[in-house]
Design a protein around this nucleic acid. Structure first.
Lengths: 342, 342
DNA sequence: AATATTTTTGCAAACGTTTGCAAAAAGTCT
DNA sequence: AGACTTTTTGCAAACGTTTGCAAAAATATT
């Protein structure tokens, strides 16, 4: 490379015998420039593999074409960052953003400190924020929204939020899952999840809906609160069985990771799944169909959700108001709940 | 927010009664500014929650403090982007970068098109590249390195590469894994992996090493080539057993996903694992210990590797030459290979 | 008290784009 | 051929930092 100094737009323009303004407009495909000129300059740029300096462009236009995706994890960071579901969401967001010509700046709550708006938006690092990750408090999101930052969060879409939320039909999904257990004769299903968490709260309501629909009284001893990790699910069921014996015949878990943990605990005690205890999870991570028995689950459509989130964010960038969305879920029945399935 | 117009550095300076240059230096902690002045200005910045405009700063300094992480996937994108191992690496890189005050721009090969140097480096989008993902060709990496881009790739560290590589002791790991099977009496182990792939090539060598060390002749019919996905592992073993019967008594798989697929195929045929066939994988993804039976594996130390990659990249940014590293692995024995373990 | 030295600050020129506005070139009419 | 339009281009001023250099202020030295 004969790259003694940088090859800039004005160099390119000189080469083409036009002004930098013309070159700039030509590269951006501005129709005010004669088509013939445009094509000539674009070809020249390609030939000299020139590309515009993003920093300069961002400074001038005040637009970065970057979206910050914040993994909003709780204290025990190490745990959740490995959750396949969250990472899947990030992957889908990346795809969706790239398709719209935006780039994805990945961040965890560590770097961004407290003031997201200041760090990302005011400082011209990104045009907008997408928050994913199960936090129990949403003060930071509210702060960002109130400061006028374009923001979309993954979460419970039915919360009357101060910001735009996209998420699954949690309540409906949980109801379908629980009902599925009940219909197969498992009338004492456990609810396994984290009640402090907005999305899980909705799932709890769905669980109650299903019980009510079948005239089954709610038994508080079957409602178990636990962190959303594999280990926590294992510990919780282990402890419960040790203390109270096997006083349930089904489990609806708020995440597949928890469900798999619970399943392991039961398998160690030689409980017959799905005959004695039927299990269903939530998320439908790839692992679900690999486990043995394969885990029934509620599939969340993360790909669609990611697309909606991006659409909503771009809409906000255009000054239009945001709108929350609930995306549909799908019941995936496998062997862990239904002996007739594989 | 009284944010009619932007609050810039010179506004802050005016407020503090100093020049913008002083303010700039003060914020950056330049000791040439009197400490008292520095503190006063920093306090003022905090109070007005001011933060420097990154675009302007990048333009001026020609440094972005951003590293592009490229998920270098093969054609069938959908498959690999879900590989938990890759995503784990990204998570660890994020952590390592943030600790050094760098940000992570996530990219797949889709957006960056062909010329990484042009797109990321020349255009001031990032200062350096980290490539992760199992590609079969490394022309793009070579091109980037030759164009002078700071670059570190995850891969086989023993390749005599034109660029800096960080990866695991693949050959050693594979040897230990295979040897583990042999020592437990499984003298006809299958090698299950993708030979075209540099890292897997090394693992194949390790497999051969182990056979040689125990005077077991290499049987080509036990060397099976397959993509590195769950489905491919399943199909491959299924097909093999259907055609040739159970002519092996062990499997060393090049990734846990493949191993889990293989395991499923065997379980469906009621093969006793680990007695009739012992299985060991590679990566030690979280799923490994959740599967049933729990999957033995070779653990890759991605956290350490990520730190090394970042260190190496920053070194290159300082003009120092890069150096490849192999990080140690660890044999994780579980039930899928050893009936005495859980 | 004058000079030499050191510490602390400010001036002003970049960095490489984009874009409102005016000017030049080309095309259309009388 | 001149007087209009319309199309196509260029000028020059931003965008908000950082930094070499020189000037000013403070301190030390004779």
């Amino acid at each position: 490379m004969q790259n003694n100094s940088r090859f800039t737009l004005s160099d390119l323009a000189k080469l083409a015998g036009v002004s930098t303004s013309t070159a700039s407009r030509a590269l951006r495909g501005n129709p005010i420039i004669k088509q013939q000129t445009r094509e000539r300059i674009q070809a020249l740029a390609l030939e000299h593999n020139f590309s515009l300096n993003a920093a300069a462009s961002r400074l001038r236009t005040q637009r970065t074409h970057v979206i910050a995706v914040i993994l909003n994890l709780t204290e025990h960071t190490e745990q959740s960052i490995n959750d396949p579901f969250l990472l899947k969401v990030v992957g889908d967001l990346n795809q969706a953003l790239n398709e719209r010509n935006y780039e994805l700046l990945l961040s965890n709550s560590f770097m961004a400190k407290d003031d997201w708006t200041q760090y990302f938006i005011k400082s011209s690092r990104a045009d907008g924020l997408i928050v994913v990750g199960q936090a129990k408090s949403d003060t930071k999101m509210i702060a960002a929204a109130e400061a006028g930052a374009p923001i979309v969060v993954w979460g419970d879409p039915h919360a009357s939020a101060k910001y735009t939320v996209v998420g699954s039909e949690n309540r409906l999904g949980a109801k379908q899952a629980t009902e599925h257990l009940i219909k197969l004769g498992h009338t004492r299903p456990v609810f396994l999840g984290d009640l402090e968490h907005a999305e899980m709260g909705e799932r709890y309501k769905g669980y109650c809906d299903a019980l009510a629909a079948h005239n089954i009284p709610l038994d508080d001893s079957l409602v178990m609160s636990t962190d959303l990790t594999y280990q926590a699910g294992y510990d919780c069921i282990n402890q419960s069985v040790k203390t109270n014996g096997l006083n349930f015949d089904g489990i609806f878990a708020c995440s597949d990771m928890v469900a798999l943990g619970a399943m392991k605990a039961l398998k160690e005690r030689y409980v017959n799944i799905p005959v004695d205890v039927a299990i269903i999870g939530f998320d439908d991570i790839p692992m679900a169909e690999m486990s043995h028995p394969a885990l029934s689950s509620i599939k969340q459509n993360t790909k669609l959700a990611a697309e909606i989130m991006v659409t909503e964010l771009l809409r906000q960038l255009n000054g239009e108001p945001g709108q929350s969305h609930a995306v549909g879920i799908e019941l995936k029945i496998r062997h862990s709940s239904d002996p007739t399935r594989t």
